[in-house]
């Protein structure tokens, strides 16, 4: 099951904890992977670890021209893009009343607008192939909200509405569009939390622990597979029961 031999996958944010693990999972299933991210060094290290079938495609998603160029770079490097995983994201947390226009806009630009543009950029090839998988990494806070994250929650909820709309449009062409909404996952981002913050968070998670990047990657692998052809427009929540949606 979940064999991706012969498929090509573009993963943004592959230099991060979750993105790197998604790349490993898709690669292990046989896919050729395009590793995109802002920092080249971790991408090169990951490509070296994976060996064959791994391409490094650096891209700063806050640069509109770089975003516009990425789908073609990926297709040139891999011969096409069958699977797109929009995993890259940034957070610029602040109380709503103190949030600057720049904090708002930068999070919307990278998390939502870049996702829109990359989806659009890979659709032509998927339409022609009559096969495609788009997996957008949302967040539990897109569904529940979170104090201090008005911008991030808006972008992550926006990804869900966008995914559903696109899913309607392209379902007849063998293309599925889904979202995965992680809860609290052990990454560099959550490492920064204080012990007090962590214990308060754990108190809200029925599983009593944070999730691992591999548990997000497994959800992405499923939605990327041929077996998930009849699943589209859905959001798969992977959050230890923190929010049962």
């Amino acid at each position: 099951m979940f064999d991706l031999t012969g498929k090509t996958a573009l993963i943004t944010g592959a230099s991060g904890g979750i993105g790197g693990e998604i790349a490993r999972a898709l690669h292990a299933a046989g896919a050729t992977v395009g590793l995109s991210g802002t920092r080249t060094e971790p991408l090169e290290a990951l490509a070296a670890e994976l060996g064959d079938r791994a391409h490094v495609l650096p891209c700063n998603l806050s640069d509109p021209e770089a975003v516009a160029a990425l789908p073609k770079q990926a297709a040139d490097a891999m011969g096409g893009v069958d699977i797109l995983v929009n995993n890259a994201g940034i957070a610029r947390d602040n109380l709503f009343m103190r949030m600057s226009d720049e904090e708002w806009q930068s999070v919307i630009d990278v998390n939502l607008t870049a996702t829109f543009k990359l989806c659009k950029g890979v659709l032509r090839g998927m339409m022609k192939a009559r096969w495609g998988r788009i997996v957008n990494i949302s967040s539990v806070v897109g569904a529940t909200g979170n104090p201090g994250q008005g911008n991030y929650a808006a972008a992550k909820a926006g990804m869900v509405g966008m995914s559903k709309s696109l899913a309607y449009e392209v379902a007849s062409r063998g293309i599925t569009v889904n979202a995965v909404a992680p809860g609290f996952i052990e990454t560099a981002m959550t490492d920064k939390l204080t012990d007090d913050q962590k214990s308060s968070i754990l108190g809200q998670i029925p599983s009593g622990r944070m999730g691992t990047p591999a548990e997000i990657a497994a959800a992405v692998l499923y939605l990327s597979s041929a077996e998930a052809a009849y699943v589209t427009g859905t959001t798969l929540h992977v959050n230890g029961g923190m929010a049962m949606l």
Partner: peptide, 9 residues
């Protein structure tokens, strides 16, 4: 409508 997009492509 999607067919018309594909025709143009």
């Amino acid at each position: 409508s999607l067919d018309t997009v594909e025709l143009v492509m």
